[in-house]
Write a protein that binds this DNA or RNA. Structure first.
Length: 575
DNA sequence: GCCGTTTTCGGCCCGACTGTTTTCAGTCG
C-alpha cells in the first residue's frame, strides 16, 4: 500500500510550520501549504504516481521540480531530509507551541527560545507563574488568553460533524434574522461548502447598523464567551466550545462578503488572481476598478466579473472547478429533490427501532417511490442480525405489505457482512431471492492492507452483490477508514457492476467526497442512502446529497434518482 | 517554492481586530 496522500500532506505541513518558525520567505511557506492541500485532495495516490514517474508529479498544480523531489522522498521513506534538518535547527518545543491559539510562529519562537518552554504543560506552568507578561511580543493580556485556552483544552482543533453544527448554528441564525434592520443572514464558510465536519461557523448578516447586530450576537444566550467584538466583526464561543464568527455587510457588499466568507481560501485566491488579470481588485466588499466598486450586491456578480458562471459552494475548493467553469463543463449537481428512494434502511428485523411498515409509511410521506429494507445478517452479534430463515420470513412479510401499499414499493434487501476471508454471511439462495444485496465491513477493521484488499475484492466479485455499503467503514473522528486499496476496489466494482454507496449518516459520510468523485469519474454508479435505523433518520438524506455534490456527481451518477422500473433494471443488469 | 492573457524574473489575495508597537506586528480567517 502506498503512503496515503494525507500522510504526505502532513509532512509537507510540518515542513511549512518549521520554515515559518525559521522566519523563511512567507511565499515559500505558502508553496508548501498549498502543495500539502492539493496532494491531500488529489484523487489518485500521489505516492503511486511518484513510484511510477516522479516527473508526473509536477502536473499537480502547485508542485514544481523541488516539491516533486521532496514528495518522492516522502513517498518512499515516509519522511524527508529537509524535515529532519529543520527539526534539528528549530528551537525544541516551538512546533508544539504553534497549536496554541494566539501563538503563531513569532511567539512560538519566543516561547521556545527565550523561555525554554518545550511542552504545553510547560507553557501552562509558565503562564500561571506570570512569566509571559514581560516578554516582548507577548504581554499580560496574551498571557491570560493563553492560560484560559490551555485550561479549557482548546489547543487542538476541535471539529464537529456538519449535522451537529447545524443544530447550534441554525437557531442562532434565526435569532440574528429577527434583529431589527437585518435584511438577510446566511451561514457561510465550510458549513455552506458542505464539508463533512466544521471547525467553526461563519455567519454573514446584511444590515446597515453593524453595531446593533454585533451587540445582539455577543449578548446572545448561546454565547459562552466573547472572543472579539468590533464594528462589523465579532466572534463568540458557544457552550460546546464551537467558535462562531460574525461579519456584517451593507447592501452593496453582501454578495461579495458571502462569496469571500464561503471560501474556500484556495478558491478565493484563484478567483482573485483571475480578477487581477482583468485589472480588478476583488475583496470581501466587492469588485473594484481602481477606486470604483463595480459589483458586490449579489454573489453571482463576483463570478460575472471574472467571466465565469456561478459555481455551487460545494465545489469551491480549487479542485478544478474554475477550469471546469471556464470550459462550460460544470456538472449539473444532484439535488435532494432528485432522490426517488432510499436503498439502505433497517427495521426491527435487526437493529432498527421501527417496523417495516412504519418505515415504509414514513418513506411514502417523503414522496419516495421505493424503500429498501436491508437488515443485518447474523455475523455481528450487536446488530441482532437475521439468518437465512429470518430473511425468508421477512421477504414474505414484505410481499404482503407491498400488496397493501399504493404509492411505495418496499424492496427486499439485506446488508450482508463480509467475513474476514471475503466470503459473505448469507447463503447464495437467499441472496438470489432478494431484490437488492448490500455488502459491508463490520469487523476486522485493522487487517493488514494486503489482506483487507483481498477480502474486499473477493466480496465484490460475488455474483449477487449489488452495492458496497459504507465502503471504508470509517466513523468520522472515531474510527479510521479500513486500510485497503480503494483504487483496486473501484476497479473491481466497475468490473463486476457493483455500485458504491455514499452513506448519509453524518458520522459516516462514506464514501468521502474525494473517493466518491474518483469512483464517479471512473464510471462507478453511486447510491446515496440514509442507513436509517429509525424514522427520523430517513430525513438524513440531505447530508449524503451534499457529500455527492462535493464529489461533483450529477443526478445521472446516482442510482436512486431513477424511477423504480429503471432502478430494477439497473439492479438486474449487474447480476 | 511556484509560475506566466504584462512576466523565465519578480511578483505572489486581502483585510479586521488586538495589544502595546507611539506607527505597527502578530494572528487569524
Amino acid at each position: 500500500m502506498p503512503l496515503p496522500n494525507a500522510e504526505i500532506a502532513r509532512v509537507l505541513r510540518e515542513i511549512a510550520d518549521l520554515l515559518e518558525i525559521q522566519n523563511a520567505n512567507p511565499f515559500r511557506v505558502r508553496a508548501y501549504r498549498n502543495a500539502a492541500r492539493t496532494v491531500e485532495e488529489h484523487p489518485e495516490s500521489v505516492a503511486a504516481i511518484a513510484a511510477r514517474d516522479p516527473d508526473e508529479l509536477t502536473e499537480i498544480p502547485g508542485v514544481g521540480k523541488d516539491l516533486a523531489t521532496t514528495i518522492t522522498e516522502i513517498a518512499k521513506k515516509g519522511t524527508a531530509k529537509q524535515l529532519r534538518d529543520l527539526q534539528r535547527e528549530a528551537p525544541a518545543g516551538a512546533l508544539e507551541m504553534l497549536s496554541v491559539p494566539n501563538v503563531g510562529p513569532k511567539r512560538a519562537r519566543i516561547l521556545a527560545e527565550r523561555l525554554k518552554i518545550r511542552t504545553r504543560e510547560g507553557l501552562l506552568k509558565a503562564a500561571r507563574a506570570g512569566k509571559l507578561a514581560d516578554e516582548p511580543g507577548l504581554g499580560a493580556v496574551i498571557q491570560s488568553k493563553i492560560l484560559r485556552d490551555l485550561e479549557a483544552h482548546r489547543e487542538e482543533e476541535h471539529r464537529i460533524s456538519r449535522a451537529a453544527a447545524a443544530q447550534y448554528a441554525e437557531p442562532l441564525l434565526e435569532r440574528l434574522r429577527r434583529v431589527r434592520g437585518v435584511t438577510a443572514a446566511d451561514i457561510a464558510g465550510s458549513f455552506r461548502r458542505a464539508r463533512e465536519s466544521v471547525g467553526d461557523i461563519d455567519m454573514l448578516v446584511r444590515a446597515d447598523d453593524g453595531a446593533k447586530v454585533v451587540d445582539a450576537f455577543t449578548s446572545a444566550p448561546e454565547a459562552a464567551d466573547v472572543i472579539e467584538s468590533g464594528a462589523t466583526k465579532a466572534a463568540i464561543r458557544l457552550h460546546n466550545g464551537l467558535r462562531v464568527d460574525l461579519r456584517v455587510f451593507d447592501r452593496d457588499s453582501y454578495g461579495a462578503g458571502l462569496h469571500y466568507f464561503t471560501g474556500s481560501k484556495a478558491h478565493n485566491i484563484a478567483i482573485r488572481k483571475l480578477g487581477q488579470a482583468r485589472k480588478l481588485k476583488i475583496n470581501e466588499y466587492g469588485v473594484w476598478k481602481g477606486e470604483k466598486r463595480v459589483a458586490g450586491r449579489e454573489e453571482k456578480e463576483i463570478f460575472d466579473a471574472v467571466g465565469l458562471p456561478w459555481i455551487p459552494p460545494e465545489m469551491r475548493e480549487d479542485r478544478g472547478e474554475i477550469e471546469a467553469a471556464r470550459a462550460g463543463k460544470l456538472p449539473d449537481l444532484v439535488e435532494l429533490a432528485d432522490i426517488r428512494g432510499d436503498l439502505h434502511s433497517h427495521s426491527t428485523g435487526s437493529d432498527g427501532r421501527n417496523t417495516i411498515e412504519e418505515m415504509a409509511r414514513a418513506a411514502e410521506e417523503l414522496g419516495y417511490e421505493y424503500l429498501a429494507i436491508t437488515d443485518h445478517s447474523p455475523a455481528v452479534r450487536v446488530t441482532n442480525g437475521m439468518d437465512d430463515a429470518g430473511f425468508k420470513k421477512q421477504m414474505a412479510a414484505i410481499d404482503k405489505l407491498n400488496a397493501k401499499l399504493s404509492k411505495l414499493t418496499v424492496l427486499k434487501g439485506a446488508e450482508v457482512d463480509i467475513h474476514k476471508d471475503g466470503t459473505l454471511d448469507l447463503k447464495d439462495a437467499t441472496l438470489a431471492a432478494l431484490d437488492i444485496v448490500l455488502v459491508s465491513i463490520h469487523s476486522y477493521f485493522d487487517l493488514p492492507p494486503k489482506e483487507q484488499t483481498a477480502r474486499v475484492l473477493k466480496a465484490l466479485s460475488h455474483a449477487h452483490v449489488d452495492v458496497f455499503a459504507h465502503p471504508t467503514a470509517r466513523l468520522i473522528g472515531r474510527r479510521r477508514p479500513a486500510a485497503f486499496d480503494l483504487e483496486a476496489a473501484i476497479k473491481a466494482a466497475l468490473d463486476h457492476g457493483v455500485m458504491m454507496e455514499i452513506d448519509a449518516q453524518p458520522e459516516r459520510l462514506d464514501l468521502d467526497d474525494v473517493s466518491a468523485r474518483t469512483a464517479h469519474e471512473r464510471g462507478v454508479m453511486l447510491t446515496i442512502d440514509t442507513d436509517a435505523h429509525a424514522l427520523p433518520e430517513l430525513t438524513g438524506m440531505r447530508w449524503g446529497v451534499d457529500q455527492a455534490r462535493r464529489a461533483w456527481v450529477s443526478k445521472k451518477g446516482i442510482a436512486n434518482t431513477r424511477p423504480l422500473g429503471r432502478l430494477l433494471k439497473l439492479l438486474h443488469a449487474a447480476r
